[in-house]
Computed example of a mutant assay.
Amino acid sequence: SGPWREAETYIYGRRRKVRWKEVVGLWRVAESDVPVKLVVAEVAGYKKRFTLVGSALELTGLEMVELFAARFRQEDGFRDLKQRLGWEECRAWTKNPIERTSQAQWVTLSLLRLTQFALESAGEVDWWYRPPWRRKKDRPSVLDVERLLRRHRGEIQRFLAEWLGDEEEAA
């Protein structure tokens, strides 16, 4: 019940309009004496409504949507680390190799994201792939940057070999 509230905020990489309603109540799944906040939100660019339940009563509904979206981007990052950069293949059993591997992968993912954002902001549009099953895809992904770099792998290897003074290995 009550009117929809509206605002604009930064969600999933761009400013979006958000409409939401919120209510505090008791949820049977949680302990019956612990109040929870329920938020239903419509986010511009998404077909389905967001339905969130949380115990942080001091947050507004909009703040809960922002936090959910930020958390979801973290999950995307973990997925990218696991699926695209081989994190699941890290078989280290001690702290140091795990930290080194994780740091190297986070730096790599960050560099891929920065490359993606730089190409996108420069207005480049023909370098990334729009799959036939997703023609409305409107922005590149980390996978698109990986494809771009793979296409130029030979050139990159030759450049690095020349730079390092190993021209014989580049041949």
Rank of each mutant, 00 (worst) to 15 (best):
R73H: 06
F68E: 03
W106F: 14
N96A: 12
P132I: 04
E155S: 10
I98T: 07
T60F: 00
L57K: 00
E162V: 11
H152C: 05
C90A: 07
G86S: 03
E31Q: 12
L160P: 04
S121L: 08
R49Y: 09
R150N: 05
K95G: 05
G45T: 02
R158W: 04
E169W: 12
V18P: 12
G154H: 02
L62E: 02
E146I: 15
Y10E: 12
R73D: 08
Y12G: 08
T9N: 06
L38S: 09
K37T: 01
A30R: 14
E167S: 14
L26H: 15
W93V: 11
K47A: 11
R14V: 07
Y12K: 12
L148E: 08
D126Y: 07
L148W: 12
R153S: 06
A41M: 00
A170K: 09
Y46M: 09
E63K: 13
E168K: 14
C90R: 01
P140T: 02
K37I: 01
G86F: 01
R5L: 12
G86V: 02
K21F: 03
H152K: 12
Q83S: 14
S102I: 04
K48W: 07
E58S: 12
V23A: 14
E8D: 06
R130T: 15
Y46Q: 10
A170F: 07
T101D: 09
S121V: 10
A56N: 13
K136W: 10
D126H: 13
G77C: 01
K48M: 10
V65M: 00
L149P: 10
L81A: 04
